[in-house]
């Protein structure tokens, strides 16, 4: 094995997601995303900004396997998203935590049960669930809302439940679509610290947001989604 091969090999090991010439259109509509070429590495922390309608949520959908590209190749945890057998998908999905732009909380379940859901699905035992969920809810400031149902919570509180649910399973890849849109700056900072903590433990993070101030304050890799494709603007912005 020569040095170049070794490099390629270790790069592959740290590769969480890679896109090659990926394009997407919804049915017969125009191509929303095109020429996507990027790689997300283990432990990477990315912000993605872009105008409303630029395709941020669409890109997220590709990443959490709810949508298939119309061209190009996507590999997630080393597996081709189209060729992977259907029965292997749940195992891949369990390694991905998602904060949906519209939260998608289950309305007749309590805050506790909503957050516990990914653990239940993975078959974690009750005692462990009780401990972890309670702890995390305290951390995001919802310790007193454990038994509340989502419709009784404020928008910001619902958002925190959605975030708690996304991180409870310590995912290898965390996708957060506008996770701080409904909270004040103080809580937004706190939530981003939570993501950073997770990131330090090895989680790859991708956050779509409109909040440029936040992006600037936290540094990290910065992407701009424009013209249907991702442009790395990290150095442009920090300069």
């Amino acid at each position: 094995m020569n040095a170049r091969q070794a490099d390629a090999r270790s790069a592959e090991l740290t590769e969480v997601v890679s896109f090659r010439d990926v394009g997407v259109r919804y049915e017969t509509g125009p191509e929303i995303l095109r020429d996507l070429n990027f790689t997300l590495h283990r432990g990477g922390f990315h912000f993605m900004t872009g105008a409303s309608g630029a395709g941020k949520s669409t890109l997220m959908k590709l990443l959490y396997l709810a949508l298939r590209q119309t061209r190009g190749e996507i590999r997630i945890f080393g597996r081709d998203n189209i060729r992977v057998p259907r029965e292997d998908l749940p195992a891949i999905r369990r390694k991905i935590g998602v904060v949906f732009q519209d939260f998608r909380l289950i309305n007749h379940l309590s805050t506790f049960e909503n957050v516990a859901l990914p653990l239940r699905v993975a078959g974690v035992d009750d005692l462990q669930i009780r401990k972890n969920v309670t702890e995390l809810l305290e951390w995001v400031g919802l310790g007193d809302q454990i038994n509340a149902i989502p419709s009784r919570l404020s928008g910001g509180q619902q958002q925190r439940v959605a975030i708690a649910r996304a991180v409870i399973g310590r995912p290898a890849l965390l996708l957060a679509d506008e996770p701080t849109g409904n909270v004040d700056d103080r809580i937004a900072m706190r939530l981003l610290y939570l993501f950073e903590e997770l990131n330090k433990l090895g989680t790859t993070v991708l956050i779509a947001t409109h909040n440029r101030q936040l992006v600037r304050r936290f540094g990290h890799i910065q992407w701009l989604l424009e013209g249907g494709t991702v442009i790395d603007v990290t150095n442009t912005n920090s300069a």
Partner: peptide, 16 residues
């Protein structure tokens, strides 16, 4: 339906 979809995206097995 929304719950079914959500559980699916969380990696629940179809049989679960």
């Amino acid at each position: 339906r929304n719950i079914i979809e959500l559980l699916h995206l969380m990696g629940a097995q179809d049989t679960y």
